[in-house]
Simulated assay, not measured.
Amino acid sequence: MEDAMLRHVYWIGGGSGAGKSTIARRLAGRHGWRLYGTDEVMGDHARRTTPEEAPFLHEFIAMDMDERWVSRSPEVMLETFHWFRGEGFGLIVEDLLRLPSDRRVVVEGFRLLPHLVRPLLAEPRHAVWLLPTAEFRQAAIRSRATPGGGFIGKTSDPDRAGRNIAERDRMFVERLREETARLELRAIEVGTGMTEDDLAGRVTEAFGL
């Protein structure tokens, strides 16, 4: 039922730093689509959940910065990160169902896990996942660097926190690669030799536009 109600929705998932937001904005601007960024509603979604509904999220909220990013292994960080577990995904769907269906919507964010999106697709080509290489992600991180080191600068060991996050995210991308292949969904490898125009063209082609 929901797949029919969301047939006007296009989905761009993938790893952090892969260009999801940039490409979604380009598509929305070019075609006059609505844009829904899942990162922008994380705070709202956290407030709309209870500990019973999202136990990993509320455990994460209670942690200090070192507990989140320094003291745990990348493997534990991967397995317990609430958005990677799909917590709050139902709220994304609720939000989309509330939007008018008079024009298309492009949804983007790492929270779009293939196994959760797949049942909502009226057509498989309405979804694509961007999988950044390690080099591409490192370049993206350097370009986004903020004075003071951002949130990892608030830990007692920013270097270790950065390494932990990089390894966690590498494993997450591998999980996305395996899952998209298993579910026969489209994935695009994003490397340092790919320009923004190249990537926009690949996503446009994947969507059949």
Rank of each mutant, 00 (worst) to 15 (best):
G37S: 15
E196Q: 13
L130M: 12
D66T: 02
L27C: 00
V203F: 09
A161G: 05
M5F: 01
L35P: 03
A145I: 13
R72N: 02
V107L: 09
L113H: 02
A166I: 04
L57M: 14
E67L: 05
F136M: 13
V106S: 10
I165H: 08
P147S: 01
G148S: 02
M171T: 06
H8D: 14
H82R: 04
V76M: 13
D44T: 12
P55G: 12
D157Q: 07
E178V: 11
R68N: 06
A161H: 10
A187F: 06
R137W: 13
I61E: 15
F81M: 09
D39I: 06
S16F: 09
T49E: 10
E53P: 00
T49H: 07
A140C: 08
R104P: 00
R98S: 09
P55V: 12
R182V: 00
L209P: 05
G14F: 06
A54L: 12
V128D: 07
N164F: 13
V41S: 10
D66K: 00
G193Y: 10
E94S: 12
D64K: 08
L96Q: 14
L209E: 10
R30P: 03
E178W: 11
V41T: 11
S21R: 08
R72W: 06
I152H: 00
W11C: 01
F89Q: 04
R48C: 05
R68S: 05
A145G: 06
F110Q: 00
H115N: 08
V105H: 03
E189F: 02
E179L: 04
G17P: 05
P132L: 14
M194N: 03
L27Q: 00
P132H: 12
L91V: 00
V128E: 06
G32T: 05
T146H: 02
D198F: 08
N164C: 07
G37E: 14
P100E: 06
F60W: 15
D197I: 03
A139R: 15
M1S: 15
A54G: 05
F172S: 00
D159R: 15
L99T: 01
W129F: 09
I92F: 00
R168S: 05
R175Y: 07
Q138D: 15
I152R: 00
H8L: 04
T50H: 14
V9K: 01
